[in-house]
């Protein structure tokens, strides 16, 4: 262990990820969006979970087997990571709605000039790809929902996420810590939790407005054509927020949707255990690239 630490300390590595900012109009508001990208080929637009940011996709962005076929792009939603809230944010509580989320994705995709991208989202990102499939499916080459379902039952009161007598970063991370599989490497478990500790006040709660209040999609996903836009759902067995049975039920309601339950993974597969996740995402990306 010591020699590994010493070796990594003396060997500098520059990752292939390039980060930039783009100014995008979203529902009439100018937003300065931070995005990272790597690779060439089929655009693969990645959506982070509620209360986190695009760092969750760093392993995908650095995976040469993926980036030789895909132009991987991950952006921080407004209010998240290095993307500021819109001007005047101090006068409003943040609440993500289905409409705002869809338009954020479509606006950023258009601003970056992406032609029929694949969209892969996790958690709230896994939920919104269902709405994209339903309302805008023809705009996308394929859609991948990680830890996504049309609905899942709540397991705590989100008011605990943003109040003056509870540290927001600590409680957000502590809550989601149980969603990481026990087999996930300690380094990546705590990296995943750090992203939650760094989230702005009320941002996780604001994202969950979309999840809890504004996006019950049960019975509303008609018209999805998976022959035009393949839809893949992958859910970790340790995710008790979006349980495997939630994703299976959702997939069974959509003709042609494919669902996979991922062993030894939780709610943050790409972030908490990249090696284990790769076993599951590789065949999906290969199938998309071959289509």
């Amino acid at each position: 262990m010591k020699s590994t630490t010493a070796a990594s300390a003396t060997k500098s590595v520059i990752e292939p990820i390039v980060g930039r900012y783009i100014h995008v109009d979203i529902l009439g508001e100018s937003c300065r969006i931070y995005f990272e990208e790597a690779g060439q080929g089929i655009p693969l637009l990645c959506l982070h979970t509620a209360g986190s940011d695009a760092r969750q996709y760093r392993h995908i962005l650095c995976d040469e087997e993926i980036t030789k076929k895909f132009r991987v792009i991950a952006f921080d939603m407004p209010w998240h990571g290095k993307s500021y809230p819109p001007v005047g944010y101090q006068n409003n509580d943040y609440e993500l709605t289905t409409e705002r989320y869809v338009e954020t994705i479509r606006s950023i995709s258009a601003a970056l000039g992406l032609q029929k991208p694949v969209v892969m989202g996790c958690s709230i990102g896994g939920r919104i790809v269902l709405q994209l499939a339903h309302a805008h499916g023809e705009e996308f080459r394929a859609l991948i929902g990680l830890e996504g379902a049309d609905y899942q039952s709540p397991w705590y009161d989100t008011n605990w996420l943003n109040r003056s007598d509870v540290h927001g970063g600590e409680v957000c991370a502590a809550l989601v810590s149980g969603l990481v599989a026990p087999q996930s490497p300690s380094e990546y478990r705590h990296e995943t939790l750090w992203q939650y500790k760094q989230s702005g006040p009320g941002v996780f709660k604001g994202d969950l407005y979309f999840y809890r209040v504004d996006s019950d999609l049960r019975g509303k996903l008609g018209g999805i054509n998976t022959e035009i836009t393949p839809l893949f759902l992958l859910t970790g067995e340790y995710d008790f927020s979006c349980k495997p049975e939630d994703s299976i039920r959702t997939a069974e309601s959509i003709q042609g949707a494919k669902v996979t339950v991922m062993k030894e993974l939780g709610h943050f597969p790409m972030s908490e255990n990249p090696a284990q996740f790769k076993k599951y995402i590789t065949p999906v990306l290969d199938e998309i690239a071959a289509s």
Binding site: S153, W155, Y156, W160, D165, V166, H167, E170, V171, A173, A174, L175, S177, G178, L179, A181, P182, E237, Y238, F240
Partner: peptide
Amino acid sequence: KAGWHDIFALTKSGEMTLEGEMQPFFAHLQ
């Protein structure tokens, strides 16, 4: 095993219950 690994997984499934004053619990959750 999955579903038995976290207090909130167990309260969600009904195998555990939590009641009382919740502020100290959430303030010191981890």
